[in-house]
Amino acid sequence: MNFHREKLVNVIQGDFVISEDSEAILTTVLGSCIAVCLYDKTRGIGGMNHFLLPFREGAGGENVRYGAYAMELLINGMLKEGADRARLEAKYFGGGNMIGSLQNIGCSNAEFARQFLSDEGIPCLAESTGGTQARRIRFWPTTGRVKQLLVAGSAAPTEPPKPIVAPEPILDDITLF
């Protein structure tokens, strides 16, 4: 029996990886984060990033955990390795609402990815965002193929907000003149 061993490359939060290895599979797990899979099929090269928040103003925003910086690094890294900007195609995933009581960070991340790709003129051929489940992504960077697995029962249970109850008035036997 002939077994083919996969070359899995894990892309962690706040990181990106570029590969032209036809046996490599870039993989990550996402909740409210976004992973953008970018590739040039003709050149046979692709990359994936994994960002936590859309952007941050100032020098602190120059960190891969922010989408604006992560996208610039991914695009420029691919161009440096020989990808042609006119042939770049994208797919992106994640942006789940993992904790219902917090602001919807996932939705903001997904909207950022959509707008950034549009502004850069990079066509997005597929996306899967939103919901309350985590996603396990596998990306074959040389072909652009992506496989997504939704992780069952991954969202944190949310409690309904507690009603605001006005305190009972304090009644005293004091008479004011």
Rank of each mutant, 00 (worst) to 15 (best):
S22E: 14
A24Q: 05
E159V: 09
E20K: 14
S108G: 11
N109W: 00
I25E: 09
Y92M: 07
I18T: 07
A155G: 13
S154L: 04
I122H: 09
G60F: 04
K41R: 14
A24R: 04
I75S: 01
P160C: 05
A68K: 13
E120R: 13
D172P: 00
L88I: 08
R56K: 15
A68N: 14
V165W: 09
G46T: 01
E120D: 09
C124T: 14
I105N: 11
I45Q: 11
R56T: 01
G58C: 03
K147R: 14
R114P: 01
I25T: 11
G14C: 01
V151W: 01
P157M: 08
P54Q: 03
V11I: 13
H50C: 07
G144D: 00
F93I: 05
R136S: 09
W140F: 11
S118K: 15
E57Q: 06
A90M: 02
E81L: 10
F112P: 02
F16N: 06
S128Y: 11
G44M: 08
Y39F: 15
N104K: 12
R5L: 10
M71E: 06
P169G: 04
G130I: 07
L176F: 08
L149D: 15
A70K: 10
Y66G: 07
L73H: 04
I45E: 00
R136E: 04
E23L: 06
N76H: 12
T132S: 14
G77W: 06
R135M: 12
G77N: 10
I105G: 04
G14T: 00
G153E: 09
R65V: 04
N76K: 12
M71H: 09
S19Y: 00
H4I: 11
I122Y: 05
F112N: 08
L125G: 08
T158E: 12
A83Q: 12
E72L: 07
S154H: 00
T27C: 09
K147M: 11
G77L: 03
D119W: 05
F51Y: 14
I105A: 10
A86E: 15
P123L: 05
G61I: 03
S101E: 15
I25D: 03
L53N: 10
D21I: 02
E89D: 07
A134P: 03
M78A: 09
P169H: 07
P160W: 08
G106I: 02
M78T: 00
A35R: 00
G58S: 12
T42W: 11
M71L: 13
C37L: 04
G77V: 01
A110F: 01
L125A: 10
A90V: 02
H50S: 04
C37Y: 00
E168T: 07
G44K: 09
M78H: 10
P141T: 02
E20D: 15
K91M: 10
C124G: 06
R85T: 06
I174R: 13
P163T: 03
G47P: 07
K91Q: 15
K80G: 09
S128C: 12
I170K: 12
F51N: 10
R114Y: 11
I164E: 11
G47T: 03
I122W: 11
T142N: 09
